[in-house]
Design a protein around this nucleic acid. Structure first.
Length: 577
RNA sequence: GCCCCCGUAGCUCAGUUGGAUAGAGCAUCGGUUUCCUAAACCGAGGGUCAGAGGUUCGAGUCCUCUCGGGGGCGCCA
């Protein structure tokens, strides 16, 4: 609808330019629904945009545009000049109503797009190493990434959801040592270091307490789950592991348990990864060496103090970075670069990395290195999301990763459920801080909890269907619906809003911003619920069979859009609540 | 010190890539029920869009600076 009008306007503007002897291209002009209803269905700023080139006052051009455009093939009912030179358009009423027919005929396909033309896109997200349960920060990233993937699929892309992790390296050694320490403590062979020492980085670290050695690492993982893992080992192995190093059974057991837990958490929030990519495989496959060799060929690699550096400062970045430490071990940057070259070798046209704000500095280095290796760095995208805080009773709870004070996805999920969790995690734009209002999320009053509000709006369409069935009225097909019967302003408003779904879905996909969908759904539900409520003015089920069919058609339209939108957010669309 | 993000109603946040008189939820206050779920709905109050300059027909939106909050600047990941 909007595209067709915009197209007509572009053509008309082109004719005006030619008439004035200007053979240049027609600049893009906006055709937007205005904020104020009195300004019509769509407003165009073309006259003001062209004022300079045509050397005529905007309002005069606007008049000429209206004349040139005519009725735009029956599309426009009325057009008038307003304000500084806007042209406001009122579409013919039946045009809006006809949209409902299109919607019903499209059914569950409504709002799908082939914009992606089947291009392969990879979305990498979560990517937490198995050192602990997922925190709510990971939770945000998980939902954000999955929604982006869902929206891209809806826009005609072929999407691979990928999780990148590393179960080797220093982090995991510390994990093993932490578990071993708790194991020995529980067997009475070691002493816990005490809260003062753990809580204060400057405090002196005890060598032993009450004659028992302190083996817990200074930078160890302090979460209670570490003790839980140790206990499980005691239950299954007794004290047979006392002489094992942290790197052995302890690390393996911890990794196995934690990764299993993470995968369960991921599944419980409705996410299904296609690939779990282990960083170690890059070493096994020789990709690290290969990438390092390729980087050397760019001539920007040099050695200093025993380490291998890359001259990022020659690529417009503020500093050089180490690729290989003087110990001979690569830094995290090198595998990261290798990983991205590997992604391209798998044929992805676009790779989207969803990451926390703490990685913001990293993106440019990977991008620059990839470009230096001859890839198109435009194909790499980063979606950075800010951190999550929790609010309960008006008080913020700050999360701390290694201290025992963070709330896990599982804990929050147990309180609020998957659908509420998902909606709350995508209601904000990624680059905004997200304050998770636990009180509101736990609210069971469906008029208050935003997630239930959306789902109930959907359930209502089924409530109406159940009512219709009870009266022996069948749900209509698109052909049964005489949309001209839907002439009330609130009905036209609703149809207009439903008609926006395809462009909202596409724009949200293109901007990687699922919150647009969440807000849109709120608007749909916010029109629909009052409409249903006010049955005195317009009961859906009435004696008038044709009117009833039309309103049931509208009901189906609402159901389709709400179900589709909830689906993009990975939320369920219940038939009854 | 340098880089990135944020600053919009009491609170939490949207704002369609520069459009007309800045919106929603929660909270507060007032109202509606013989009715397809009252587990719903209607209405009201509430704003120097952090501040100051600039760009132009037009700025919450773009540029510069200041202030405030967060993140980053490692041979950690």
């Amino acid at each position: 609808m909007r595209e067709r009008l915009a197209e007509q306007i572009q053509l008309a503007l082109g004719r005006l330019l030619v008439a004035a002897g200007d053979k240049g291209a027609v600049p893009p002009v906006a055709v937007d629904p205005p904020r104020q209803k009195e300004h019509g269905d769509y407003a165009c700023n073309g006259a003001m945009v062209l004022a300079k080139r045509l050397k005529r006052p905007p309002r005069e051009i606007a008049d000429a545009l209206i004349e040139e455009l005519g009725r735009a093939g029956g599309l426009v009912a009325r057009a008038e000049v307003a304000g500084p030179g806007f042209v406001n358009f009122w579409l013919a009423g039946d045009r809006w109503q006809a949209q409902l027919g299109d919607l019903l005929r499209a059914g569950a396909r409504f709002g799908r797009s082939d914009a992606g033309k089947g291009a392969e896109v990879q979305v990498e997200f979560v990517s937490a190493n198995p050192t602990g349960p997922l925190s709510i920060g990971h939770g945000r990233q998980a939902i954000l990434g999955d929604c982006i993937a869902r929206m891209l699929e809806n826009a005609g892309y072929r999407v691979t959801r990928e999780y990148y992790f590393n179960n080797g390296g220093r982090q995991m050694r510390v994990l093993g040592d932490s578990v071993r320490a708790r194991y020995l403590e529980r067997l009475g062979r070691a002493a816990p270091p005490g809260l003062e020492a753990l809580g204060d980085e400057d405090a002196t670290w005890p060598e032993q307490i009450d004659g028992l050695p302190v083996v817990f690492p200074r930078d160890g993982y302090q979460g209670e789950y570490i003790g839980g893992i140790a206990q499980q080992l005691i239950d299954s192995e007794g004290d047979s592991l006392v002489d094992e190093p942290g790197e052995g059974r302890f690390r393996e057991a911890a990794e196995a348990m934690l990764f299993a837990e993470i995968r369960e958490t991921i599944e419980s929030i409705g996410i299904d990864f296609d690939v779990f990519f282990n960083e170690n495989s890059l070493y096994d496959d020789g990709k690290i060496e290969e990438t390092l060799g390729a980087l050397r060929e760019t001539g920007k690699v040099y050695e200093e103090e025993g380490a291998v550096w890359f001259r990022f400062s020659e690529l417009g970045l503020d500093r050089d970075r180490v690729l290989v430490k003087s110990s001979g071990e690569p830094t995290y940057l090198l595998p990261d670069i290798a990983y991205h070259t590997e992604k391209f070798s798998r044929g992805f046209e676009t790779v989207i990395n969803v990451q926390g704000a703490d990685h913001k500095d990293q993106g440019p280095f990977v991008r620059a290195a990839i470009q230096a290796l001859g890839h198109d760095s435009e194909q790499i995208e980063f979606v950075f999301h800010e951190f999550v805080t929790l609010s309960r009773a008006g008080t913020k709870v700050k999360q701390s990763t290694r201290k025992a004070t963070f709330i896990t996805v599982d804990e929050l999920l147990a309180d609020v459920g998957r659908d509420v969790f998902r909606l709350f995690m995508v209601q904000r734009r990624p680059e905004s801080h997200l304050d998770f209002d636990v009180d509101l999320a736990e609210e069971e009053d469906w008029t208050k909890n935003p997630a239930y509000y959306l789902q109930y709006a959907h359930a209502r369409t089924h409530g109406i269907e159940r009512q219709a069935q009870a009266r022996g009225v069948a749900m209509p097909t698109a052909d049964d619906v005489d949309t001209s019967r839907l002439a009330l302003p609130e009905e036209i408003d609703l149809i207009k809003k439903l008609g926006e779904f395809p462009e909202v879905a596409l724009r949200a996909a293109e901007t990687r911003a699922p919150h647009h969908v969440a807000y849109y759904l709120r608007e749909v539900a916010g029109l629909w619920s009052p409409y249903v409520q006010d049955k005195n003015r317009h009961a859906i089920l009435s004696e008038d069979a044709s009117l009833t069919a039309a309103r049931l058609g509208l009901t189906l339209g609402v159901r389709i859009v709400l179900a589709r939108g909830l689906g993009l957010l990975g939320m369920s669309a219940p038939e009854r609540m």
